[in-house]
């Protein structure tokens, strides 16, 4: 029960270290890095490897952006299992809808309230 906090911190931190290495060593832009991580998460789920990682690390696996690729794939696969090929199309946002809708909603709300500030 308590160990999930430790594994979450370590696994989440390590995924970020991979991202940092992509910044500093591979000289990738943030956008290229994040896209690559999302694709990696998606492929890992194809091999059925991402869900065990979530069992092991909890939010350490669900909070990094890799989980977004995993969730999209997972939704698509779950629907495909039920409805065949057409499910690949229809199931994609089944699991990830909360992240996207929260981002859109809070992004829009923020634009009512805040102004960008160029301070340090």
């Amino acid at each position: 029960m308590f160990s999930i906090y430790i594994t979450s911190f370590i696994v989440g931190g390590l995924i970020c270290v991979i991202g940092q290495l992509m910044f500093d060593v591979a000289k990738m832009t943030p956008a290229h890095t994040l896209c690559t991580l999302v694709v990696a998460g998606s492929i890992l789920d194809g091999f059925g490897l991402y869900e065990p990682l979530i069992d092991f690390a909890g939010t350490g696996a669900t909070i990094p952006i890799t989980s977004f690729g995993n969730a999209l794939t997972h939704g698509a696969l779950a629907e495909a299992e039920k409805h065949g090929l057409i499910g690949v199309l229809t199931g994609m946002f089944e699991v990830t809808s909360s992240g996207i809708s929260a981002a859109i909603l809070f992004g829009f709300i923020a634009s009512f309230i805040f102004k960008p500030k160029g301070n340090l």
Binding site: Y5, V11, G12
Partner: peptide, 9 residues
């Protein structure tokens, strides 16, 4: 990154 995940936990 670890801290963000821990908070989420």
């Amino acid at each position: 990154g670890g801290a963000f995940c821990l908070v989420a936990q």
